[in-house]
Each structure stands twice: as structure tokens, then as C-alpha cells.
Amino acid sequence: MSQRDLDLLMQTLAIDSTWGRERELAEFLADRLREWGADEVGLVESMPGRPSVGARIRGTGGGRSLILNGHLDIYEVSDDWDTDPFAPFVADGRVHGAGIADMKAATTASLAVMRRVLESGTRPRGDLVFQGVSCHFEGGVGTRSLLDAGFTADAAICGEPTDNTIGAVHRGAAYLEITTHGKQAHTAGKHLGLNAIETMEPVLAALRELEGTLPYEPHPELPGGPILNIGTIHGGTKHNQVPDRCTISLDLRLLPSQDPYEVRRQVIAMIEKLSADDPRVKATVEFSPHWLSGPRLPYEIGTDAPIARTVAGAVRTAGGEPAFRGIQFWTDMVPLKQAGIDAVNIGPGTPPYSWANEWVETSKYLEIVEIYAAAAEAWCA
């Protein structure tokens, strides 16, 4: 099976599914699943023009059902690639291709397991469900749409890159937009205006201090405190105009003990203090539309949960030693949990996850195929 599984990965890597352009890959996966004989295959428009693909292998009855979840969308590729990002190749024990770590290797491994079960001639007792989701970067919109369409189960495995370690806990996030409000004027009459870029300066300084003072409870699997990144800044219209608006976007990565809504209130309180000291500082703080499309809440289940124990056993079956490690980023385990579905994450790939000349170790990809297959057999049988 190894070469066929590797060939399937090369096919998915050759399809450009950059964020917003998932349709071609979704249709390719749906065609393959129909060709192999899946009992139910559906393309669901998660957002206009951005389908997700769901598929089901119906069990014979009496077993537990399992979702294999992976996203199709990948980040925009860097101009620093040395080769064509969508011409995958194998070299020095690694498979190279755009989005392979985040997360086409795991998504394709799930697809390979569906093929293996369908071609085996033996059905599990419980259903096996494939979720190839678009719109992951909008906060799990694709996963939610597939669940709404009926592609659901008793438990799930996600495949975000964790170097084939098992994740049962991860950080949440608060994506915030802060806008300072000034008054427009011409440079020649600057004294009649209020420069919103200049009044953003104390906000930026206060945010750097806030990163180290936000309250949280340490978590043994997620070292360190909250992480704050100022990702974008936009302000002004022309060089000779005093800007009346300046907006920054923040990504605050949080611990399970922190609530994104409370963190927003803490940022507002910080700005209110700045305004009290300097009335020129007038600002609003809102969640970004990108966050509101799927709130990035933290996630945690016990490592003794049935699906966690099953995946740990599957790692042993595949010849490895299971290791549970916290995940620093957000995953679709949150929308699954909100639907009442316990999940764990395990997938190939290492930091920085999305980068020029992205790769995954060939052995880790082939290993995850075996882990998913063993987990499906143990859980659904």
C-alpha cells in the first residue's frame, strides 16, 4: 500500500487549494470516493464557491462511528520557494509540496484509509466518515457545514501537524481590531486635526506590556503565557492628510483558562486607562469578522477519554510509542466538541508548519496512514 498511498499524496499536492480556491481539490476527492464505492458522498458549499466534501462508509451495525477530519485550504505560498510549489517531489526522505504539513499529508492519509477500507471487502460495524473541509481558516466553517449536512459521528480524529504526537488540548485565540479615531486635516493645518496614527503609538506600547500581565493559569502541556502578535496596521489616506483612522489587528493566543470575551474586555479597560491619562486617545475594540465567523475557543479533553485511548493504542499498533503533547494553535476539534463529538489530533509535520519548500518526512506520512487505519479498525469494529 505504501507506494499507492504516496502516489495519492502527490496527486493532492499537485492541486492548488490555496485559501479560497478549494473547489478543484474537493471535486477530486469526491470523484475518488465515488469511484472507490463510498456509500454516501456529498459536496457542501461551506461558503459561496468553496465546497467541502463529506463521505460515509456505512457500517454493518452495532459499532461506534468515527470522523477523519482534515482541511483542504492551505496558506498562500511564499515567493521564496526554490521549486514549483505545486510540483511535488520526494528527496532525502521528505515529500515536498505546498501545504503538505498544514495539512494535506494528514488529509490525504485519511483519504487513503477510506480507500483501504472500501477495497478490503470487509465493512466495519460502525460508520467511517471522511470530512475534507474548506474554510478552515475562517474558524471551522467547513467542519460546521459538514456536521449540519449530516456527516457526523461518535468521535473524531483531526490531523493538524503535531509530528505524529497526540493532542488533547490546545490554545484558543482572540482576533481583535483596534481603531483609533482622530480628525482629518491638511498638513498645513495639522493643529486643527488629530493624528490617529500618533494616538495609536501609546496603544501599541500598552499592548506590549499587556501581553505579560494578562491573568492566566499555567498549563503543563502549553508552556508559557498568552502570546500577542500585532499582525497588521492601516491608517491614513495620503502623505499630506492628517489621518482620522488607524486600525491594527491582533492575534492573542490564549490558555484554556482564558476566555476570549474577557480578554477583549481587558483590552478595552487598558484603552480606557490610556484615555483617562490622555483624552486624545479615542479607540474602539472589536473582534475581527474573521474571528466571529468561527470563535477560536480553547480545547481540552482528558487523555483517558475513549477516543484518546483508542488513538494511543493505534500508535502502538503502528509500531510507535504514543506521546500526548499540547498544541499551540487552534484546530477544528472545537466545532466538533460543540457538536458533542470528542476528538483528538494527530498528524505529520513540524514547525513552522507553512513555509517555503514545505515538507513532511515520508516515513511520518506513511506512519500516519497506518495509525488512522488502526484507529478506525479499533474504534469502528
Results as ranks from 00 to 15, higher is better:
176 L>P: 05
181 H>L: 14
178 I>Y: 00
185 A>S: 12
201 E>L: 12
194 L>W: 07
195 N>Y: 01
188 A>Y: 05
207 L>A: 06
174 A>V: 01
198 E>W: 12
202 P>L: 05
200 M>W: 15
201 E>H: 02
182 G>N: 02
177 E>H: 00
188 A>M: 03
188 A>F: 12
196 A>D: 11
186 H>E: 15
190 K>S: 13
186 H>Y: 02
187 T>G: 11
200 M>Y: 10
176 L>H: 03
188 A>H: 04
199 T>K: 12
191 H>P: 06
179 T>A: 05
182 G>S: 06
188 A>P: 11
190 K>N: 09
189 G>M: 14
175 Y>Q: 04
200 M>N: 14
200 M>L: 14
179 T>R: 14
204 L>K: 09
200 M>G: 06
207 L>Q: 02
177 E>K: 08
181 H>D: 09
182 G>D: 11
195 N>G: 06
199 T>W: 06
193 G>H: 04
174 A>Y: 03
202 P>A: 09
206 A>G: 13
197 I>M: 00
174 A>N: 04
199 T>P: 01
209 E>Q: 15
201 E>G: 12
193 G>C: 04
195 N>K: 03
200 M>Q: 12
188 A>V: 06
177 E>R: 11
209 E>L: 15
193 G>K: 02
195 N>R: 09
189 G>Q: 08
194 L>F: 03
200 M>H: 03
179 T>H: 12
194 L>M: 04
183 K>M: 00
180 T>C: 07
178 I>Q: 02
194 L>Y: 07
200 M>T: 03
179 T>L: 00
194 L>E: 11
203 V>K: 01
199 T>H: 12
180 T>I: 06
178 I>N: 05
196 A>E: 05
190 K>W: 13
201 E>W: 13
207 L>V: 06
208 R>A: 12
199 T>E: 13
184 Q>N: 11
196 A>C: 07
187 T>K: 01
196 A>F: 03
209 E>P: 13
196 A>H: 02
203 V>R: 05
184 Q>E: 11
200 M>K: 07
178 I>F: 09
186 H>G: 03
183 K>D: 04
203 V>C: 02
191 H>W: 03
192 L>Y: 15
173 A>N: 10
200 M>A: 09
200 M>I: 10
198 E>G: 00
180 T>D: 09
208 R>D: 15
206 A>S: 14
183 K>E: 10
196 A>P: 13
205 A>P: 13
199 T>L: 08
200 M>C: 07
197 I>W: 09
209 E>V: 10
176 L>Y: 10
186 H>W: 05
198 E>A: 06
182 G>H: 00
206 A>E: 15
176 L>C: 07
